[in-house]
Design a protein around this nucleic acid. Structure first.
Length: 558
RNA sequence: GCCCCUGUAGCUCAACGGAUAGAGCAGACCCGUCCUAAGGGUAAGAUGGAGGUUCAAUUCCCUCCAGGGGCACCA
């Protein structure tokens, strides 16, 4: 890779082991820029000295056109035009594989994502985990990692005690997902005045965990209904996880852990009789509750059992939990306990991405318990309806079948992109119009740009694309070339930082450049027609590959 | 009270300790015999307050203010 070649050359020239190389946002500062000279006392002198050596470096002369000192001592690099053009050739050769690498070869990453709770509708809150998780999955896959996607369904715990309680007393005529949600909300309403209900719910869960057949039958019914409902949503979203073991799967693993003397010796009796693990040596004041006072397991027990299971089954290098920020403490506890109990090798990376939440328009958290949620299905349906309206207006689609496809790929694309474009850490205020945005910085804008490029290529039928250097590339053309060759680096960066939004930023900026170029210059029947067609092809291919990683389809025309 | 996260333009969001803080939406103006106007262009608009570290701070540290989330028997 170009980046490595330059980094290595700087290392040789400066004698430093770690050097920083960035891609300046402003193209006036070159393709790459390094601040190594700024670390010392005489930045300008150091920079000059390093530049002298760089100029003599044979390994660099083939790719660098010029190296200059700038500002207070930055060293800026400009790539040769041949190198830029070569990027275009690579895209043409690799096509849908452009951007991929094998740098994760031999390593395994497990991504725990989506993980909706059984017996509740698939709410807007689960969108982030599902979409970001899938994007991370695709990013790591592109880097050659062995990737395991596991949907850690919330199908166990006292929440079922609550539900079973309600089902037994209310005896609803039909167990639909809507009814189950109603019962859950009702439970919490009732429990406000009757705190003893909480105790009763825990007893019910205890019964479930003890294997009571009647209780288990009701539980199974809830699971079945929910899975059917989720399948509908996953189908709409085009998301498919490799596994969906769910929390209940770890029942036996938990039992063996509870009986494990190595683990038992870390358990202490907490304030009210629960068995807890003290984590103060990890700077966590709240101990992890391993067993409740009645001996039933908790969410944390299940997550620890899951780590043990996953380690045995896949021996991962990284485990990523794509779960919301509200579970920050929980994962800090689980990770610390996993280290303490030596459930993972010390070098294994445990990551909680901690994405921000969708907040209700009033700025508060959506709450299932209070029945204050937005159903994801409604959002997707509305987005599709809006996309269809535009598709009909544009008139590009040839028949009803194509309109239907557009309706889906553009509507869903808008929602997914909206979700992914935000830095994962921050909360997002839910807003129907913004979520379904089809213009500006949006998924459909990227899809549209690709379709536009596609259309030009189609219109130029029969004409060659020329992937060779031309004498006089203009500013816009150079700028697009510069972006195109950065794509593989962006994939790596997005994965390393668990940040699909970086890929979104990149694709958006590429699309902007292309649209700017498109507005200003003719492609067909221009002087550089063949080169420009190749450029349009390159943009289309990179947009397509990038969108695919984001889980968004690229329609041929729209 | 303690612990996490976030305060950037009217609104919603970007920015790897770097160079002139990027966008979109909304509002103003312009571009249709021209390869897809789901587009392009012009102008206007921002780092919560006070300290500190650094050649350089939206970014790191301290403190104050504001918002969100969490703090043992939900997950």
């Amino acid at each position: 890779m170009i980046r490595e070649k330059i980094t290595d050359a700087i290392k040789r020239a400066s004698g430093l082991e770690k050097v920083n190389l960035e891609c300046p946002e402003n193209e006036a500062f070159g393709d790459y820029s390094s601040n190594v000279a700024l670390q010392g006392k005489n930045p300008k002198k150091d920079a000059e000295r390093i530049i002298e050596k760089l100029k003599k470096d044979g390994k660099l002369s083939g790719i660098i056109e010029r190296v200059e000192i700038a500002g207070s001592g930055f060293i800026n690099f400009w790539l040769k035009k041949d190198v830029l053009i070569d990027g275009l050739k690579q895209i043409d050769m690799a096509k849908s594989d452009f951007g991929k690498s094998d740098e994760g070869k031999g390593k395994t990453v497990i991504i725990d994502y989506s993980s909706p709770n059984i017996a509740k509708p698939f709410g807007i809150g689960h969108l982030r985990s599902t979409i970001i998780g899938q994007a991370l999955y695709n990013l790591y896959k592109s880097l050659g990692y062995e990737v395991v996607g596991d949907n850690h369904l919330g199908d166990w715990g006292t929440q079922f005690g609550k539900l079973i309680c309600m089902i037994e007393t209310e005896k609803p005529e039909e167990l639909s997902i809507e009814n189950l949600e109603k019962l859950y909300v009702e439970f919490h309403k009732k429990a406000e005045d009757n705190p003893e209900l909480e105790e009763k719910a825990r007893e019910c869960f205890k019964k479930l965990e003890a294997g009571d057949p009647e209780t288990k039958a009701i539980w199974q019914k809830c699971v079945d209904i929910s899975l059917k409902e989720f399948a509908k949503v996953y189908d709409l979203l085009g998301v498919k996880t490799d596994f969906a073991f769910g929390e209940s799967y770890y029942e036996s693993e938990m039992r063996s852990m509870v009986g494990d003397s190595g683990i038992r010796r870390h358990l202490i009796t907490g304030e009210e009789g629960a068995m807890v693990i003290d984590l103060s040596q990890y700077g966590i004041k709240t101990p992890l509750m391993f067993l409740k006072k009645d001996g039933a397991t908790t969410y944390a027990t299940r997550d620890l059992a899951t780590i043990k299971f996953r380690t045995r089954k896949w021996d991962p290098d990284i485990i990523i939990y794509e779960v919301g920020v509200e579970q920050n403490l929980h994962f800090r506890q689980v990770f610390a306990a996993a280290r303490l109990l030596k459930l993972v090798k010390p070098e294994v990376l445990l990551v909680h991405t901690a994405h921000g939440l969708y907040l209700a328009p009033e700025g508060q958290k959506f709450s299932t318990r209070k029945g204050n949620t937005v159903k994801l299905e409604d959002v997707l349906n509305e987005a599709e309806a809006r996309a269809e309206k535009l598709a009909l207006k544009s008139g590009e689609a040839k028949n009803k079948d194509e309109i239907d496809k557009l309706r889906k790929s553009v509507g869903i694309g808008a929602v997914k992109y909206f979700d992914l474009m935000h830095a994962t850490g921050s909360n997002v205020v839910f807003d129907w119009d913004k979520m379904m945005n089809l213009e500006g910085n949006s998924g459909p804008y990227l899809q549209y740009t690709a379709a536009r490029a596609n259309s030009v290529i189609a219109k130029a039928k029969g004409k060659d694309q020329k992937f060779e250097a031309i004498n006089n590339p203009n500013e816009e053309e150079l700028s697009i070339l510069r972006s195109l060759i950065k794509f593989p680096e962006i994939i790596k960066d997005s994965a390393d930082r668990y940040a699909p939004n970086l890929l979104c930023n990149y694709l958006y900026s590429l699309a902007q450049k292309f649209n700017g170029f498109y507005g200003k210059h003719k492609i067909i029947d221009s002087e550089n027609e063949e080169f420009r067609l190749a450029l349009a092809f390159g943009v289309m291919q990179v947009l397509k590959n990038g969108l695919k990683i984001l889980g968004i389809e690229t329609p041929e025309r729209m």
